[in-house]
Amino acid sequence: SAVVMEEGSPGEVPVLVEPPGLEDVEAALGMDRRTDAYSRSSSVSSQEEKSLHAEELVGRGIPIERVVSSEGGRPSVDLSFQPSQPLSKSSSSPELQTLQDILGDPGDKADVGRLSPEVKARSQSGTLDGESAAWSASGEDSRGQPEGPLPSSSPRSPSGLRPRGYTISDSAPSRRGKRVERDALKSRATASNAEKVPGINPSFVFLQLYHSPFFGDESNKPILLPNESQSFERSVQLLDQIPSYDTHKIAVLYVGEGQSNSELAILSNEHGSYRYTEFLTGLGRLIELKDCQPDKVYLGGLDVCGEDGQFTYCWHDDIMQAVFHIATLMPTKDVDKHRCDKKRHLGNDFVSIVYNDSGEDFKLGTIKGQFNFVHVIVTPLDYECNLVSLQCRKDMEGLVDTSVAKIVSDRNLPFVARQMALHANMASQVHHSRSNPTDIYPSKWIARLRHIKRLRQRICEEAAYSNPSLPLVHPPSHSKAPAQTPAEPTPGYEVGQRKRLISSVEDFTEFV
């Protein structure tokens, strides 16, 4: 048969007729292969192709491409040299491709048809291009793949890379869960390890502090508590009631339409708007009261037996805890006409967050109470924005700035309102402590230090009264110190430094 060459192609190359033996071998191979691939376009007849790359030819070592076609129900084999250009295909004639002069020997084609199974398996396991790669995943090629499931790999992101949580363990979102698992493993320790309690022994800490320079003076030496005195035992138990972190309780009120001037209507609300609910979820963490331990979680007086509701929101960081007394989460009882059960919590909070959804101005004093010092007013606006402002009593104007209003988005509203309420509550605590000038409020841990110092002074006084020969370590507060001759004046800087060093040991009130 003659071949018409394309323009620009090399000279004529004689194409030899395939021997009958080659056709029989390739026909047997075509019957084993699956003929249901995917359909081509209507211009080209339905056909199945599979590209198999052999590394070497037997005796020649030339890479070839073998295409199996099922045109007219008769499979045909096409061998081509890759750099050459194939002729145009037609549905009426068999596929013809040019070969190099080196394939002119018909014996070479017979060798190609009689490829060993080793070469076929190696060509099938190679990388296939384009559409033949999808075909190689079918059941027909499963014989050339190794048996057994593939090893499982770690989760992959859409980009093909490992997620960040699997790369950096410290930033993994499941870090707290692993800590819980470690605690569970520790709890399952053997009885021999049960006595080993991690941490620092208080006796060891005391020993280090006792021999430090801070205890060089007799006034700073630790003293032993009497065991037989019940009054001192009660004082030590009272110390446990003062937490070592700051605590805040903040009221949250929802004002519906037409309720801006009605205290009873505001306290009777059992739910609010959708934006109000989203605002609550951002204030803190939802907790169930019956599962809380009052000595570990500050509840601000809420009952854990269901008297004040089942849930509330709280927030904490390293040095403070805040609980929100939310009116809509507290039960509304029919027998309580004046809502006294709610007001006994909300009316005693220094700061209230008022979500004013009424469309009218909310005035300070609508919720009557002796300790309502500051109101954080949240007014929802259009386009997911809110107006946040402050209202306070006249005696609080020096501590709280009420002249600045803020426009905040719904997303950042819980954070801004919480921070403003916490700052206002700190100012309210300082303002409330002014009624007792001898006990200015600095912080909870300073209050613990003052309680310890008062307890020490009482013990020293009782020891001096029981044994008059012992001198008083600290003179009583009601006694007057003996007159001392004025010492020589020293520079102001040295006096300030000495006073600062003494105050650092005794108390921190002056620095606050």
Rank of each mutant, 00 (worst) to 15 (best):
K394G: 10
A463H: 14
L470N: 15
T402S: 09
K499R: 13
T485A: 10
L289C: 11
I266R: 03
C340K: 15
L280D: 01
T312D: 05
L267N: 03
D341Q: 15
H316R: 14
D334N: 12
F232K: 05
L455R: 06
A265Q: 09
P489I: 09
C385I: 06
E257V: 07
N269G: 03
V323A: 07
F373D: 11
I502G: 14
I353D: 00
D317Y: 01
P243Q: 08
E233V: 11
K363L: 09
P226C: 15
L239E: 13
V351I: 02
V297P: 15
K363W: 06
H451M: 14
E494G: 15
F415V: 04
K249Y: 15
V495Q: 14
I446S: 10
M330K: 05
S409P: 02
S466Y: 08
D295G: 09
H431C: 09
N386E: 00
G347F: 15
R285H: 13
R458Q: 15
Q321F: 10
R234E: 15
F373W: 15
L239N: 09
I250G: 01
H431P: 01
C340H: 15
Y383Q: 05
P476H: 13
D410A: 00
L264G: 09
C314S: 07
T485N: 13
N412M: 05
S229F: 09
S409W: 01
S262F: 03
L455H: 09
K394F: 10
N220R: 14
E510G: 14
E228C: 07
Q293M: 12
M420T: 06
D401L: 03
V304S: 09
S403T: 13
N436A: 09
S428I: 09
G398H: 11
I250V: 04
L470H: 15
T379G: 01
S479G: 13
L455Q: 09
E288I: 06
I223G: 11
R344H: 08
H474V: 14
N436Y: 07
V374C: 09
F350L: 05
L264S: 11
P476Q: 14
A487C: 10
D439T: 11
R275P: 00
P380T: 00
N220W: 11
V505M: 10
M426L: 10
K296S: 07
H375A: 15
E360F: 04
N436T: 10
K296R: 09
I353T: 00
S273C: 03
L302K: 13
K342A: 07
V236R: 08
F232N: 08
F350R: 03
Y493L: 12
S358F: 01
V408N: 01
T277Q: 09
I242L: 13
L364E: 15
A487R: 10
E288C: 12
I250Q: 01
P475T: 14
D357H: 03
V354A: 01
Y254N: 00
D295S: 06
H474F: 12
V505Y: 12
L399V: 11
V408M: 01
I459Q: 06
K444E: 12
Y313C: 08
R434P: 05
G359R: 08
D334Q: 12
L280F: 06
V473G: 15
L302H: 14
Q370N: 13
C292D: 15
A421C: 02
A481T: 13
L239W: 08
G309M: 15
N356A: 00
D395G: 08
P294F: 13
E228D: 10
P486H: 12
C460F: 12
A421E: 00
L381M: 10
V416Q: 03
Q230I: 11
N220A: 15
F279C: 00
L346W: 04
Y274L: 08
Y493E: 15
E462K: 08
P468N: 11
H432Q: 09
D291V: 06
F373R: 07
F324R: 01
H338T: 14
D217K: 09
L283F: 02
M396N: 01
S352W: 14
H316N: 15
N220T: 13
P437S: 07
Q429R: 10
N269T: 03
D382R: 02
Q293D: 14
P489K: 10
